[in-house]
Design a protein around this nucleic acid. Structure first.
Length: 490
RNA sequence: GCCCCCAUCGUCUAGGGGACCAGGACGUGGGCCUUUCAAGCCCAAGACCGGAGUUCGAAUCUCCGUGGGGGCACCA
């Protein structure tokens, strides 16, 4: 390829489903490579398979990529000088190029129907070459007369084809392995192999960074390019992402097995809906198959744009590790400002039917900031602040360490202490309750646990003194009162 | 079955012939801190797939096994 030309890469998904971490990571690497080299990124939609087309997937795909922070310079939504970027709008071009291959004898028309292909499949490894030697003029006549046909590539029957991959060095395939594969389908659409190569060439793509699933057809692609006499792009095949246990390709089925409470999913949109931050996801994805060194693991997208490098991509498959996503997510939340967290958390509270007061929410954020992983987690930490009635089962107050009577005494004394406070703030609450625990000869925890339960309805809550202050004098009093009555009536 | 790719702690990885009785991160176990839960800090356990070469010397290079993965469509 011509190294003096500006770097151009492309992300070319097919709209057959929603964006998952495999595709997103490929898009990310393309994006980063373009960025660091001052090159251009192209988004091309490869929709030549009409059967698997999913209506809203293109729209969703664009939305998901943008949410992640990945942008492109040319694409169906923004246009560009190599327009159109939707492959189905380029079929005429593809047809012309396929016919050009026929005219130089690198391809031929094939009239075999599905039934015949089906019947030879068991006997032959691939296509048996039935139409390979039909006289060109006769074939053309049949095509003109409207006979249904495909166009097949005339693969060399001997020798080898060697292709250079940036991270895997030379890959050599025996040509006799390659059947005369279809370039152009009978339905009037090109096959990926043809369409992608033609478009890559026409769009001036210099580096093809794509998934390992394409590695096995790389020789076909090289052969097509060489048949046209074009220069090859630099190939870079990324390894597949495997299931968390390392067994088998990560698949959509894994996403379906997710239980209701499971926040993990391979789909970007799900991760968004569950309250993950895009920066945590890009950091996580970048490290699946790439690393800078043995020192730095925390990367914002802008950092990656400065240090990403194709040479440091690891060719071996990577298992998806969701606990590391959670780690990056938690870390990211802690780095955010309180107001940023507040506004990130807000939509999830709203979804749970909570309309928080802004000032109150802002004061709650520091209490949960290092306790939540996803933004959605905030709901279970905070809902008791906003619901009027909390449900408590009296049995929860009694445990091995504390009897019903002891609990009652604690609650009553705490109630009394709080009533006498000059101002209901956490400093005052803390010093008085610490004093009370000392006087009652109790550990702080023993004193506080029943209060926590009575006021939050939960055994686990944000730090209690601050919680009580924000809950407010009235609510605290009434909840403790209610708990006392509950206990008395057992 | 055929073709192709890959191989370091459970997982992601550093490593490019001596700097490696193999370093970091997540996770796990333990401890500290502590009002619960977290966060934070500290400590620990934990890997070069096997066998032949090459070499004074191999996690690193070569070959053969083995294991894992991907692909074999008028899908992408």
């Amino acid at each position: 390829m011509n190294t003096s030309s500006p770097i151009r890469v492309r992300f070319a998904p097919s709209p057959t489903g929603y964006l998952h971490i495999g595709g997103a990571r490929t898009a990310l690497y393309n994006y980063l490579f373009a960025k660091i080299n001052g090159g251009s990124m192209v988004l091309r939609i490869e929709d030549t398979d009409r059967k698997r087309y999913v209506e809203d997937s293109e729209k969703q795909l664009i939305k998901d990529l943008k949410w992640l922070g990945i942008s492109w310079d040319e694409g169906p939504d923004v246009g560009g000088k190599y327009s159109p970027y939707t492959q189905s709008e380029r079929t005429k071009l593809h047809r012309n190029y396929a016919e050009k291959l026929v005219s130089i004898d690198k391809a031929y028309y094939c009239f075999c129907d599905k039934e015949r292909l089906q019947s030879i499949r068991s006997k032959h490894k691939g296509y048996d070459g039935h139409c390979r030697d039909i006289d060109t003029n006769k074939a053309l006549e049949r095509v003109i007369s409207g006979e249904e046909h495909t166009i097949r590539f005339r693969s060399p029957k001997q020798g080898t084809t060697t292709v250079d991959d940036l991270i895997r060095k030379n890959i050599t395939v025996k040509n006799k392995q390659m059947e005369d594969f279809v370039l152009f389908k009978a339905d009037g659409f090109p096959v990926y192999h043809l369409a992608a190569m033609v478009d890559d060439h026409l769009m001036g793509i210099t580096h093809v960074i794509r998934g390992e699933e394409w590695l096995s057809s790389i020789a076909k692609h090289a052969l097509i390019i060489r048949a046209f006499g074009w220069s090859e792009p630099i190939w870079c095949h990324l390894s597949v992402l495997t299931q968390p246990d390392g067994k088998g390709k990560m698949s959509k089925r894994d996403a379906k097995t997710k239980e209701p409470g499971n926040k993990h999913s391979i789909f970007i949109n799900d991760l968004n809906n569950k309250g993950y931050h895009p920066e945590a996801i890009t950091n996580w994805m970048a490290l699946m198959g790439w690393s800078l060194d043995d020192k730095q693991e925390d990367f914002k997208l802008v950092d990656l744009e400065k240090v990403f490098n194709l040479d440091r991509i690891n060719p071996s498959p990577a298992a998806v590790n969701f606990s590391k996503l959670d780690y990056f997510q938690g870390k990211h939340v802690r780095q955010m400002s309180n107001s940023e967290v507040a506004s990130s958390v807000q939509p999830f509270l709203m979804k749970a039917g909570i309309v928080p007061d802004q000032e109150m929410l802002l004061s709650l954020v520091p209490l949960i900031k290092n306790r939540i992983v996803t933004f959605e987690d905030s709901v279970e930490w905070l809902s008791f602040f906003f619901t009027k009635e909390i449900q408590i089962s009296p049995s929860e107050f009694i445990n091995k360490k504390t009897t019903k009577e002891e609990t009652l005494v604690i609650l009553q004394k705490v109630q009394l202490t709080l009533e006498q406070l000059p101002t209901f703030d956490h400093e005052g609450i803390e010093s008085e309750l610490r004093l009370l625990a000392e006087k009652m000869n109790l550990k702080l925890g023993q004193l506080l646990n029943p209060v926590r339960l009575a006021t939050s309805g939960q055994k686990v809550s944000p730090p209690l003194f601050e919680t009580l202050e924000i809950l407010g004098e009235n609510l605290v009093h009434s909840r403790i009162e209610k708990a006392i009555k509950l206990l008395e009536n057992i």
